[in-house]
Write a protein that binds this DNA or RNA. Structure first.
Length: 261
DNA sequence: ATGGTCGGTCCCCGA
């Protein structure tokens, strides 16, 4: 089962690139973030023509997440549990069947950016991470394979930033942020990318400004965290830089993994 | 060179 994650920064603008990626990469499940539209406005017909279905949690103008899959999603959960008053569309989770009949639970998440530090945005980010930790603990209790995929807005270490000093006090790199990411991993999850790639300075995001893409000055902030049963089955993982190099690209590029499920 | 870039919009905000 191939699972991919991509912050598309508007699914309407990125539709041609999205169709290209589905055609070329053929993921079984694709997690999308920042679709920036209501679920009813998601371009389903074009996706369906390629044999894919969509489950979305949308929002006007901001945020919005979706699961694009070949097989129908089962037991869909919309919204990260733990706060009834959170109206930001940042989380959707569902189960998908593997080729051997084994199931995998896939969560698509768009973790808050949190800038500027010292405001309620940073407080919200940290609280959201605490909720994610609590929910991951619940998923682990089920003893099933699962993947927490998405735009975490977290650079786990200095090796994941082109200029760690300049970014030291950014919400993506702050010690409070990194400590919570470590706490999540330390529950027993595996950073899929690091199973296969130890080199520093491999990125999934390059800012639109200042020619960051052309200078390869980016951040590794999109991650696939695997439960123990999923980690046991990992066969491959990589970042696909092709979409980022296209005209009218998203500022993020997809990350994917292959699980023997 | 005190800027630079996108996308979606209650004409600026979030990234």
């Amino acid at each position: 089962m191939k699972i991919a994650s991509w912050n598309v920064n508007s699914v309407k603008v990125r539709l041609p690139h999205l169709l290209d990626f589905l055609t070329d990469a053929r993921p079984d499940v694709l997690c999308l973030q920042e679709i920036k539209c209501l679920a009813d406005d998601f371009p389903r017909l074009e996706i369906a023509a390629l044999g894919y279905r969509v489950e979305a949690l949308g929002q006007r103008a901001y945020n919005g997440v979706a699961l694009v899959s070949r097989e129908p999603a089962r037991a869909v959960v919309r919204g990260l549990p733990g706060a009834d008053d959170d109206d930001q569309a940042r989380y959707i989770e569902a189960s998908f069947g593997g080729s051997d009949g084994e199931e995998c639970r896939v969560a698509c998440l768009y973790l808050p950016n949190g800038n500027p530090v010292g405001t309620d945005k940073f407080t919200y980010k940290l609280a959201w991470m605490e909720r994610l930790i609590d929910h991951a603990r619940e998923l682990l209790r089920r003893e099933i394979p699962f993947v927490l995929a998405g735009d975490y807005n977290v650079c786990p270490g200095d090796e994941d930033v082109y200029d760690p000093l300049a970014w030291r006090d950014d919400a993506l790199c702050r010690s409070e942020t990194r400590a919570r990411f470590r706490a999540l991993v330390n529950l027993g999850l595996t950073d899929a990318y690091r199973v296969f790639h130890r080199e520093p300075h491999r990125y999934t995001f390059w800012d639109y400004q200042a020619g960051r893409w052309n200078r390869d000055e980016g951040l590794r902030i999109d991650h696939l965290l695997l439960s123990p049963y999923a980690a046991d089955r990992i066969a491959a993982c990589d970042i696909d830089k092709t979409p980022r190099g296209k005209d009218r690209a998203s500022d993020h590029t997809p990350i994917w993994c292959e699980l023997a499920l």
